[in-house]
Amino acid sequence: MSQNSPMSPNGPSGINLRGAVDLSALKNRATAPATAAAAGAPAGGSPYAVDVNEQSFQEFVQLSQQVPVVVALGSARSQQSATVTALLEKIINEYGGQLALGRVDVDSSPQIAQAFGVTAVPTVVALIKGQPVPMFEGELPEEQVKEFFAELLKVAASNGVTGNLGGAKDPAAAEPPPLPPLHQAARDAIDAGDLETAQTSYEKALAEKPNDADAKIGLAQVHLMLRTAQINVLQAEEFRTRAAGDPDDLEAALAVADLDVTGGHVEDALARLVKFIALHFGPEREDARLRLLELYEVVGVSDPRVSASRQTLARALF
């Protein structure tokens, strides 16, 4: 997948970092006029931007249920990172509360960088409903960055994320219906970091209603989160090395595909498994095929990248 192409979100990021972050400056704007933003970007920052670290990241992710959140991953050692972050703050201000910005120092928060698969700074990603949305690396002209933001808001709107931290609300927006009890139990368990309980709740929901599409998606997402939670930074590098050196290593291919989806590199993940399926037969092919189908659920069966992958898979199988 191109690093400079937004994606359509359909699930959680797989990052399970718990903690508290002072989002009051952002949350309070939902009940007060956005006077500071309306006046223009203040020198040296944005009222819609906060510093985020490994302890505070999970709460920042939750904000992406309300508005798209942009994550600027940089380093204090990189002047380019500072330049890009300043530009992001300026543009975020112009949207008056439709977006939030989280600034991450990868030197002090390497786990966040690993979760997103960051290989260079600055890297900019976004989150919609907890799902990573790759945007771009390096420094881009302001107009091009604005194009990414405009597209990000379109993707957010298509997924029902249309809040405003400045207090503007859509009068036509209705309160979403409550989740079914087992779905709510699974969501609560995920928020508490109890993925095993979430898995059990979704499995019970599917046992009661085998055609429950939302439970099927939720279970696929939890499976991905459980698998990637077991992989540390060193193991991730080992799996990538193995996958690059041995096209027959199924364990490595599956692990790297999981990591790529979690990091937002969806096309790379799907292409890797389709290629494995095309080159192998027997139980290993079936294992790869089943994992690929589950990742389709995580990404979203209506996502154009999934549709394209299905066509390639059909050619590989038949």
Rank of each mutant, 00 (worst) to 15 (best):
F318A: 10
A173E: 12
S201A: 15
P210R: 08
V155C: 01
E297R: 10
T35P: 05
A185K: 14
F149M: 13
V106D: 06
P210N: 10
P12E: 07
K275Y: 01
D22P: 02
A113I: 00
M7H: 12
A215W: 00
P47T: 05
D268M: 00
I15V: 12
V222F: 08
T83D: 10
Q131E: 03
L224I: 08
A213M: 11
A243Q: 09
A76D: 15
F239R: 00
K27D: 12
A156G: 10
S64C: 11
A34T: 04
E139V: 15
I231M: 12
F239C: 06
Q235T: 15
A253H: 03
Q199E: 15
G160M: 10
P304G: 01
I15R: 05
A213F: 00
V298W: 01
L226Q: 14
L88C: 03
V104I: 05
F57I: 12
V299W: 12
V106A: 09
V69F: 06
A269D: 06
Q62Y: 09
A314Q: 13
V104S: 07
V145M: 11
G264C: 05
R291C: 02
L17K: 02
G264Y: 01
A253K: 01
V52P: 04
A41K: 13
G193C: 15
S2F: 03
A244D: 13
E238N: 12
T162D: 11
A172G: 11
K204D: 10
Q80V: 15
R227N: 02
N93R: 04
H223W: 03
P122L: 01
L63P: 06
L259A: 06
N28D: 02
P132I: 06
D51C: 06
A76C: 04
L140D: 09
H280T: 09
Q230L: 14
S2T: 03
S109C: 08
S64I: 07
D248S: 02
G193H: 14
A314T: 13
T197M: 10
D212M: 09
A308Q: 03
V52M: 05
F148T: 14
M7A: 12
V261M: 02
V274D: 05
S24Q: 04
V155E: 09
L87Y: 02
E89W: 14
V266P: 00
Q144D: 11
P304L: 07
A76K: 08
H265I: 02
L273Y: 01
K27F: 10
E251S: 04
L127F: 14
